[in-house]
Computed example of a mutant assay.
Amino acid sequence: MPQLNFELPAGVQFSDEPLPNPPVPRDAATVILLRDTANGLEVFLQRRVAAMAFAAGMTVFPGGGVDARDADASVRWAGPPAAEWARWFGGTEPVARALVCAAVRETFEESGVLLAGTEDGVVADANRYADARRQLVSRELSLAAFLDGAGLTLRADLLRPWAHWITPPQETRRYDTRFFVAVLPEGQRADGETTEAESSGWQRPQDALADADAGRSMLMPPTWYTLRELTEFDTAADALAAERRIQAIIPTLVRDGDRVRVIVEDA
């Protein structure tokens, strides 16, 4: 099986040997937001602030860790059931439900895009829920409580499974992250109104990769790998329709002089 080598910037700290008691990875969800433009397919990216404990200064997709309340079974739900997501990603139905809810919540918190709707369709203007967005960020409000109070239904049918990445056991902060893909709903706008990002915006995947190659940005291996995959699609519909074989990817970290090399088995 061929390998892909990806260099991390100098100064990355990790253990040369597997930790004797590596931390259990925390469940997390990442959402790859897409849109079609006259210049081609674009993806929404955010550069994390330098003060962040994880992936500081890196350019990433919206996402974050699962909150215990994301597993609330009272969330109104439309689309593939939790059992189907569990089959796609592997794992239990409660974890799958929590991951989908986390994907919707984190996307709304970090980009203002709300993958929810009513009997009339998908929300067209998410700005009306700005107060709820702030309360979700501060954890004053759970996703279930927000959706119930707003009379909204989570739209799992707007999401597709994309990938599954697990942080190497050599790192002290680990995540078990499932990647989703979704198209920007008509009428909605993705913004950068989050304290976790210093800048946000849309880019063609090939342009984002070129920025990283030129040293204008830094990408985590899963982000780089995903952007490379997205260059193969002309439209968002093509990406959503792609058949995906979801397998857990755990990169290997190898010290190479002053650099850290990430080796990813190319499935």
Rank of each mutant, 00 (worst) to 15 (best):
A10T: 15
V113I: 14
S111M: 14
A55F: 14
E119L: 09
A208L: 01
A239W: 01
R139F: 14
E198L: 02
T153L: 04
L152N: 11
A10G: 08
V43L: 09
T107Q: 07
A190R: 04
T195G: 00
E196T: 11
E196F: 02
A242L: 06
V12F: 10
A124E: 14
P81A: 11
R244A: 03
L159N: 07
A96K: 04
L45V: 08
A10N: 09
T167G: 04
V60A: 10
G257Y: 06
R97A: 12
V260G: 07
L227M: 03
L159T: 12
E196A: 07
E7F: 14
G63Q: 03
D234F: 00
A96G: 03
A126N: 13
A126P: 14
A38M: 01
T92D: 15
L45K: 09
P25F: 01
P168A: 10
V100S: 07
A239K: 01
A163F: 08
A71N: 12
F179Q: 11
V43M: 08
R87I: 12
A86I: 11
A116S: 10
R105H: 10
A208N: 03
V66C: 13
P185E: 01
M218T: 10
R128P: 02
M58P: 00
L99V: 11
A210Q: 14
M1T: 07
A82T: 12
A210F: 06
A248V: 12
A71T: 14
R133C: 13
D207V: 04
A248I: 04
N39I: 02
L136R: 07
V95T: 14
N39Y: 06
Q13P: 00
C101S: 15
V95W: 10
G11R: 06
L33T: 04
A145P: 05
M1C: 02
A214L: 11
R261W: 01
G63L: 03
T231H: 02
